[in-house]
Design a protein around this nucleic acid. Structure first.
Length: 481
RNA sequence: GGCGGCAUAGCCAAGUGGUAAGGCGACGGUCUGCAAAACCGUUAUUCUCCGGUUCAAAUCCGGAUGCCGCCUCCA
């Protein structure tokens, strides 16, 4: 079955046909490195990471590029505010970005160019646009003339006239058209600048992506992605300047992910409700965030709330418990390999869902179906079914891996929670272990009253006890609120 | 003002013409000294409302109401 991708420019799902058969060229706008990343950045990263993983699993030879914007107004502002070199601001937050992304299990793209590594190429592109009459120079600022490009507004679906009439754009007397945007900003005191034939200065925001995407991926290339907010003006402008310069189509499929709201409110710095990735990770396992995002369609807005995250946390545990039970059932048993048709059938449905514009929510429902199927077989305790369990479990793992899930092990998933919880309660492990030992002793003596007292005492602290054949184990209540 | 999106069970959330995925919760059960956890089972005759098209609509068309996003730096 063919892959279908929703293309922003046409507003519908289209059959995916790569420029070169068997290969996919993917470019995703990365971050401007002037601050730590929040969970909105994480959504974009996780969505495209999943798309990338899926394309690879389908057998495409994928080239994935994600840039760093390391020169920009906000970076300069930060460097002035903290009185450190602007390069250092970039370095600091690139490091922070990697810490967060690695923790989230987001795979590294094939290329991660930084804007400042490609200034010379940007200068060439700006010059080419000037030469072709698509750009003009005023006092060292170079602007792209939107009137010179017939298809301006094509991506965001608004004709030029409309944008101007409803315009809330600042009126700049220098510009021929209020919508004209900067390709190059003239050098200013105290700001970094590079020499160029049209005057020293620094690049505008959009030019870097035009240069780096085509340089690494060719022209046109297959998929260009980013957050929905980038459609206008960033991607519209990238498209205009690239197509004006090359005379060729820039991108075949535009893919944009929806935004993250927190408690039904837009997450933004001005409202003060941004949640940093690192702060989230102090509370939950990284796959909780991934599962949360993948449970929603990537194009829809998603509403983050404490309750949703708790629900998802419980659901993630369920996925891990299933694998644990399946492995337990196989332990020490020998069996001949057998395929399990029901699992293959579920894998097929999973692929169908993913082929339909990366419907991860539907794909996940099939993973949960398989989880149930595996549990059912384990419950039957039928020795002859072990081979089937093994086979189903292998399918289960591979589907989960495609979504970037089940990359950890249960012990680690739980130990993170334990450490976190104990720290919050001001307790330590020995306290819990001593209590458990006392209770084991009490139970041995059939002093169930005392045993129950200890259980209740720990339960009050959010710690649950499990009497298993392997002894008494403990866990953190997953939904304490 | 212009453009666009969304409204599905107690909650979260898929589904864009063929008779409602999945998760959480709740309830019932297995297990257990009792529990808990885990697991299994049950849980929307119906998709905001009103019209229309169709053999057939959550899905298409028209209208109403409510919520949200973009048009300005933003994932």
């Amino acid at each position: 079955m063919a892959l279908k991708v929703y293309n922003t420019i046409s507003g519908r799902k289209e059959d995916f046909t790569p420029v070169t058969e068997g290969k996919v060229k993917l470019y995703v706008c990365g971050v401007t490195v002037y601050d730590h990343c929040h969970i909105g950045h994480a959504r974009s990263a996780i969505v495209f990471d999943t798309i990338y993983r899926y394309l690879c699993s389908k057998g495409f030879d994928a080239t994935y590029v994600r840039n760093f914007t390391d020169i920009d107004d906000k970076i300069i502002k930060r460097s002035h505010a903290e009185n450190i070199p602007w390069q250092e601001v970039g370095e600091t937050y690139i490091r922070s970005f990697y810490e967060d992304m690695d923790a989230l299990g987001v795979l590294r793209p094939n290329h991660e160019p930084r804007a400042t590594e490609h200034i010379a190429d940007m200068i060439d592109l700006v010059q080419a646009l000037i030469d072709k009459g698509h750009a003009y120079n005023i006092d060292g600022d170079v602007y792209f003339s939107v009137d010179s490009f017939r298809n301006y507004g094509q991506l965001s679906g608004r004709p030029l006239e409309e944008m101007i009439s409803g315009a809330r754009v600042e009126v700049d007397e220098k510009k021929k058209n209020p919508l004209d945007f900067a390709l190059w900003k003239a050098s200013k005191e105290g700001e970094p600048s590079w020499d160029a034939p049209f005057g020293a200065g620094r690049p505008g925001w959009h030019i870097e992506c035009s240069v780096m995407s085509t340089l690494y991926l060719g022209n046109p290339f297959d998929i260009h992605g980013g957050g929905k907010d980038l459609v206008f003006p960033h991607h519209e402008n990238e498209k205009a300047q690239t197509e004006a310069a090359t005379g060729k189509k820039f991108v075949n499929y535009w893919v944009h992910n929806g935004f993250v709201n927190i408690d039904r409110e837009k997450m933004s710095k001005s409202i003060g409700n941004t949640l940093l990735i690192r702060d989230f990770l102090r509370e939950y396992h990284p796959e909780v965030l991934r599962l949360f995002y993948l449970s929603n369609h990537y194009r829809s807005p998603v509403d983050y709330s404490g309750q949703s995250i708790e629900d998802i946390n419980t659901a993630l545990h369920r996925l891990y418990y299933t694998r644990e039970r399946a492995l337990e059932a196989q332990k020490g048993k020998t069996f001949e390999e057998r395929s399990y048709p029901q699992a293959d059938d579920i894998a097929r449905k999973f692929t169908e869902a993913m082929d339909d514009d990366f419907n991860t929510a539907l794909a996940l429902s099939h993973v949960f179906e398989l989880s149930k199927e595996i549990n059912r077989m384990v419950d039957e305790k039928d020795e002859s079914a072990v081979a089937l369990i093994a086979s189903a479990e292998a399918v289960y793992e591979s589907l989960a891996a495609t979504l970037g899930l089940l990359g950890d092990d249960l012990a680690s998933l739980e130990s993170r929670e334990k450490v976190r919880h104990l720290a919050r309660m001001g307790l330590d492990v020995s306290f819990v272990e001593d209590a458990i030992n006392d209770r084991v002793e009490a139970r041995k003596n059939k002093d169930f009253q005392k045993a129950d007292e200890i259980r209740n005492m720990l339960a009050d602290k959010g710690i649950m006890l499990l009497d298993t054949p392997k002894g008494t184990q403990w866990r953190i209540k997953t939904s304490v609120s």
